[in-house]
């Protein structure tokens, strides 16, 4: 039996009048990789943003239902969104490094937590860069603009930046979709290593990727969670017809 990190119960989300998530219930295991797959516009990103309450930043969003992380409803009035997001790292589809140096990007999360100790900052920078397998490539240019890095390096730096605040959960929204195959492979390798320490949720529309990196896979369609199971099961022996059509590419 697995330890459950996140459990979502009957969750609905509306953008204004439009319902984007319909009655989602799911339990995401700790220290495993869970992949969300499904056609574009089916609500994967929206659901990912539910998990760290990034949707709070969008006007006109209405929600219903509960999201429990370690048994605590993160939509409870007692919960602080800012503190919540400090515990949950997020990596976005397109690298969104700040126009600052590599180093400043890495320590941003620490700085806003009030950590000023140069030694701690330096150590964290080195540690997370090593974790993200980027140290060897950038150790001699930490104070150069982050945007001078290549696309793949930028995305790995984004991951490193998210890890620097030592989150427990890392959410990734199509982190490799804009990258070449080589960089993609590096990111997948990285994800594989990170899961020993973190609970990882990754959105991808690349089914091979989901099959390669994830332990659990959830298939979304038109705002609904159609099927959720072990990745091997989803890809070899899905229960639902829609899932089968999608994973075999017979969709639409």
């Amino acid at each position: 039996m697995k330890e459950v990190k996140i459990s979502v119960n009957n969750f609905d989300l509306y953008y204004g009048e439009k319902q984007a998530l319909k009655n989602i219930s799911i339990e995401i295991p700790a220290k495993k990789v869970t992949a969300f797959i499904g056609p574009s516009g089916c609500g994967k990103s929206t659901f990912l943003r539910v998990l760290n309450r990034m949707n709070d930043l969008i006007d006109h969003v209405k929600i219903q239902g509960e999201v429990l992380i370690e048994g605590v409803n993160i939509y409870d009035k007692q919960i602080d969104v800012v503190n919540l997001r400090k515990r949950i790292g997020m990596v976005f589809q397109k690298s969104n490094l700040f126009p600052k140096t590599i180093y400043e990007n890495l320590i941003y999360g620490l700085k806003i937590n009030g950590i000023r100790d140069k030694k701690v900052l330096d150590e964290t920078a080195e540690k997370t860069l090593k974790q993200a397998a980027l140290w060897n490539e950038v150790y001699d240019r930490l104070h150069e603009p982050a945007l001078s890095l290549s696309g793949g390096q930028q995305q790995r730096l984004c991951i490193a930046r998210a890890l620097a605040v030592e989150p427990e959960i890392v959410l990734m929204d199509e982190p490799a979709s804009a990258l070449d195959p080589l960089s993609t492979a590096k990111i997948e390798e990285l994800i594989h290593e990170l899961k020993t320490k973190y609970t990882i949720v990754i959105v991808t529309h690349n089914m091979q990727q989901a099959a390669r990196v994830s332990d659990q896979t959830a298939f979304f369609y038109l705002g609904e969670l159609i099927e959720y199971d072990k990745t091997s099961k989803i890809f070899t022996n899905p229960t639902k017809k829609q899932t089968e059509d999608y994973v075999t590419g017979r969709f639409g």
């Binding site: 930043l57 997001r85 997020m90 700040f98 806003i112």
Partner: peptide, 15 residues
């Protein structure tokens, strides 16, 4: 200022 930069910052737990 791109929205993605704000998202990055909020995502890291900035106020």
């Amino acid at each position: 200022v791109p929205k993605t930069h704000r998202d990055a910052s909020y995502g890291l737990g900035a106020t």
